[in-house]
Computed example of a mutant assay.
Amino acid sequence: MEFFVFRLNKLKILDNREWFSGEVKVLSFITGKDVNLPALDALQKTTDIEEKRWLIRTAAKSVLSSKELMQIDNVKDGHQMTFGDTGYALYTADSIPVSFNWSLMLIEIDEDINALGAQIDSIINAPEFDTFTTDVLTLVAAATNPAALAGVAIVKHIFGAVANTMLNNKDDQIGLAYQSFNRFEHYPHGERKRDGVPDLSGNVFIDYSIFGTTYIPKNE
Rank of each mutant, 00 (worst) to 15 (best):
A59V: 04
V26K: 02
G78W: 07
L55A: 08
D73G: 02
V5S: 14
F3I: 12
G32W: 02
E50F: 11
D34G: 08
F20K: 04
M1D: 12
V5A: 15
S65H: 11
F20V: 00
A59D: 01
M1K: 11
A59W: 05
L8N: 02
N16V: 07
I49Q: 14
A59F: 03
R57T: 14
K61C: 06
V35C: 10
R57N: 14
S62E: 11
R17W: 03
E50Y: 14
E23C: 00
K52A: 09
D77V: 05
D41I: 11
N16W: 08
I49S: 08
K33E: 15
V75G: 10
N36I: 02
S65F: 03
S66E: 07
V26I: 13
M1E: 09
F6H: 09
S65Y: 06
T47E: 15
R53C: 06
V35K: 08
A42K: 12
V35A: 07
K45P: 10
L64V: 12
K45I: 07
F4M: 04
K67L: 15
Q44M: 14
R53H: 13
E18M: 10
V5F: 05
F3M: 05
N36D: 09
T58L: 13
V24H: 01
E18D: 11
F20H: 13
F4K: 10
D15P: 07
N16T: 00
D34W: 07
K10C: 02
V24F: 05
D77I: 05
L69F: 06
D41W: 07
D41V: 12
A39T: 05
T31Q: 04
R17L: 03
V26W: 06
E23V: 09
I30G: 03
A59E: 09
V26A: 00
D48M: 12
R17I: 01
V63W: 10
P38L: 02
F6Y: 14
S65R: 15
S66W: 07
V24Q: 01
Q44V: 11
L8F: 04
N36H: 05
G22R: 01
E51W: 09
N74I: 06
F29K: 04
N74F: 06
L64I: 11
I49W: 08
E23Y: 03
R17T: 03
L8H: 04
L8D: 01
K25L: 07
Q44L: 12
M70Y: 03
S65E: 14
A39R: 08
I30Q: 03
M70K: 08
I49N: 04
L37Q: 15
K76M: 10
V35P: 01
V24S: 00
G32C: 03
E68K: 13
